[in-house]
């Protein structure tokens, strides 16, 4: 359960059987229920057939019937590793926070850092700027490519950066360099975090912002290293949770509490 989007991943015999994403909204428990209902229906699985349910993300404690709650750090590590077996560093950028996770040779979390105290370097930062620029987030990648240079955004505080964007627009700067500047600002923060856990080995990006090509490319430029964004990267955390649930479900038979989330 992310701050912006609630995602569900369903596994059957350890294989992907369905995914679903929807806005989290204000009622977290209801969003979790709805997400599970939809994914179960789409897969033609009765809620009572769920062998195990694991919840993760900022709303993880609001998921009814979860056999276990696991932090998004562990889940993203599991999910990213499963999606990209060579992954050693995972950069996860979600709606309200970002984290960088270093994995050991066995794919276990060896170290992690999270952004602190503000929305800089998160999806929320980009959302606010997209609204101010009146450019859909999906277009950021294309506009980034078109930009010949990056406008300088010196503040990483969302509120101050927004006023910088306004002043750039008022000076007649077109959206493309501003978008590139914004992606650079996010990538600056992320690169600092990557260096804190240590750059080395496969670098993988997950979370909603991983779909933003502009941020990915800015990050590659800052780190002088390729960043892999696997298919389904925005589901990596939910996928990791599902993998943990699969392990829990194995040998657990039908645990009586599971499936209550699909009322």
């Amino acid at each position: 359960m992310g701050s912006t989007t609630t995602k569900a991943v369903l596994l059957s015999d350890g294989k992907l059987a369905g995914t679903h994403a929807m806005p989290t909204g204000v009622d977290l428990a209801a969003a979790a229920d709805e997400c599970l209902r939809v994914i179960c229906r789409a897969a033609g699985v009765g809620p009572d057939r769920l062998a195990a349910l694991v919840a993760t993300g900022y709303g993880r404690d609001r998921v009814t019937g979860a056999a276990r709650t696991v932090t998004e750090i562990t889940c993203h590590a599991r999910g990213a590793r499963a999606l990209v077996p060579s992954a050693r560093v995972v950069v996860d950028v979600g709606g309200q926070d970002s984290k960088v996770i270093r994995l050991d040779d066995d794919g276990m979390v060896a170290d992690f850092v999270m952004n602190d105290k503000c929305a800089a370097g998160t999806g929320r930062f980009l959302e606010v700027m997209a609204a101010r620029l009146n450019v859909p987030l999906e277009e950021f990648g294309m506009r980034w490519r078109r930009a010949k240079e990056a406008a300088r955004i010196s503040s990483t505080c969302t509120v101050f950066a927004e006023s910088e964007v306004i002043s750039l627009l008022s000076r007649g700067v077109s959206p493309e360099p501003i978008i590139r500047g914004l992606c650079d600002a996010v990538a600056d923060r992320l690169a600092g975090m990557v260096h804190r856990v240590g750059l080395g080995g496969g670098l993988v990006m997950t979370g909603g912002v991983s779909r933003n090509e502009g941020v990915r490319r800015s990050l590659e430029e800052k780190l002088f290293a390729p960043v892999t964004v696997p298919e389904g990267s925005q589901f990596a955390g939910a996928y990791g949770a599902a993998l943990i649930a699969f392990e829990l479900g194995e040998g657990a038979e039908m645990l009586p509490t599971f499936g209550r989330g699909c009322r």
């Binding site: 900022y58 932090t71 998004e72 750090i73 562990t74 979390v109 992690f112």
Partner: peptide, 8 residues
């Protein structure tokens, strides 16, 4: 979350 992840 951080403490939880650390314990995990």
């Amino acid at each position: 979350t951080r403490l939880g992840a650390f314990i995990e």
